[in-house]
Amino acid sequence: MSLQALWSLVVAYPQQSINTLALLFGLAGGWLLIATRLREQRAMARLVAESELETVEGDAPAMDEPTRRLNQFFNRFGYACLSLALAVSWFSTRV
Results as ranks from 00 to 15, higher is better:
77 F>P: 00
51 S>G: 02
85 A>Q: 04
63 M>P: 11
61 P>N: 05
73 F>L: 13
79 Y>T: 06
21 L>H: 03
27 L>P: 02
77 F>T: 14
72 Q>N: 07
85 A>L: 05
34 I>Q: 07
70 L>C: 00
73 F>G: 00
42 R>E: 09
51 S>K: 06
61 P>E: 04
27 L>I: 04
78 G>I: 06
36 T>E: 10
45 A>V: 05
19 N>E: 10
31 W>Y: 15
67 T>Y: 07
67 T>K: 08
6 L>T: 13
63 M>V: 06
25 F>M: 14
38 L>D: 13
25 F>V: 08
66 P>N: 13
53 L>H: 12
95 V>G: 01
10 V>P: 00
22 A>S: 12
31 W>P: 01
14 P>S: 03
85 A>F: 05
21 L>N: 01
87 A>V: 15
82 L>Y: 08
5 A>P: 00
83 S>Y: 07
74 F>D: 13
4 Q>P: 03
82 L>I: 15
59 D>I: 07
40 E>V: 13
90 W>S: 15
79 Y>S: 05
18 I>F: 03
27 L>A: 12
67 T>H: 05
75 N>G: 04
57 E>C: 03
68 R>V: 07
51 S>I: 12
43 A>D: 08
57 E>H: 04
71 N>H: 13
80 A>R: 00
2 S>Y: 02
20 T>L: 15
40 E>Y: 13
35 A>V: 08
55 T>L: 10
81 C>T: 00
28 A>W: 05
65 E>P: 09
64 D>E: 14
75 N>F: 09
29 G>D: 03
88 V>K: 00
72 Q>I: 07
54 E>P: 11
73 F>D: 00
